[in-house]
Nucleic acid binder design. Structure first.
Lengths: 161, 161
DNA sequence: TGAGATATAACCACTTTGGTTACAACTAAT
DNA sequence: ATTAGTTGTAACCAAAGTGGTTATATCTCA
């Protein structure tokens, strides 16, 4: 992408670049890994390191650190660089699956369903489909998220054998 | 991204560059396009061709044909090769958004959430996380799908202006 | 200062997606 | 029968996300 600007006087330029990408066959396993990570932190008597967590999740430590960074940014955990170890910033009774879902999915637009745009407005369907369908799909998304919000980290852990 | 600035005379220039990049991961627009296609077929007095639909959706006809093939395989429509035109195989009152959602196969193995596998079984969390989380996520997926099942094609169309 | 940990950049192979071109097969009208 | 218009696919493409990997810088405590 390139811009050619010729300025003849003092001015102020605002460039807004919006990129929207839509790809999801399945919601990323980052979510389930994040739940795994938080479960470990909750259950361990000592603070756990990224390498230890990687051993339990069975993946590369960098993958764990990437997710830990998101959980940290979301205010769910604090991680100590250098000495190592992480701890919860909220009680496991106060952390829901929805909190974790939001932490790792980084959906600024917070929309599960992609809806095609630029339909032909000269057609009745094209004029209406986007808004009508979007409101309907938002309801479906809400139903899913409300179900996630009903389960807390502590409730999940309580079901472990 | 690159900027090329050519100044024709000495002048003071203030440039404010605001870059907003939104990356949104969403369920494929195949789903919304499929709803668009079925709406057109329902509303049109004559049978509509793929090219006509492509004009309303504002995309390439092959994209439409691909989705029509999925709807055909799901038993929702019949398409006449050669002469062209498609018609519903079920009444629009009997087609729900969930039917269309399933027809276009937007999720893998009918599971919305991906869950990491091969966790370390020697760890309590690793032993339990997959089954416990999977059952919880199935509930959330179900909540979403049940909401989609509540809306029929005819109800959606009734909201068009 | 050294050991061990986190943070991050860079790169990789793989996959889905939406779009596109090309071409074969089909149907009805002429 | 020929022809025009349509559907059905195959093949290819660029863009983007994902999970993994290596390498390096930074941080903390003993």
């Amino acid at each position: 992408m390139s811009f050619f600007l010729r300025l003849t006087s003092a001015c102020e330029v605002t460039i807004l670049v919006t990129t929207v990408v839509m790809i999801v066959k399945q919601i990323s396993t980052r979510f389930s890994m994040a739940v795994h990570i938080l479960s470990l932190i909750t259950l361990s008597p000592n603070e756990v390191t990224g390498d230890y967590i990687a051993g339990s999740v069975n993946t590369n430590p960098v993958v764990i650190r990437r997710i830990m960074g998101m959980l940290k940014k979301a205010g769910l955990v604090d991680v100590r660089p250098g000495v190592g170890g992480a701890f919860l910033l909220k009680e496991p009774e106060a952390i829901t699956l929805l909190d974790i879902y939001h932490a790792v999915n980084v959906t600024e637009d917070n929309r599960l369903f992609g809806v095609h745009e630029d339909s032909n407005v000269r057609c009745q369907v094209g004029r209406n489909i986007e808004s009508v369908l979007q409101s309907e799909l938002s309801e479906a998304q809400s139903a899913m998220e409300q179900r996630l919000a009903q389960t807390t980290l502590s409730q999940l852990i309580a079901r472990f054998n």
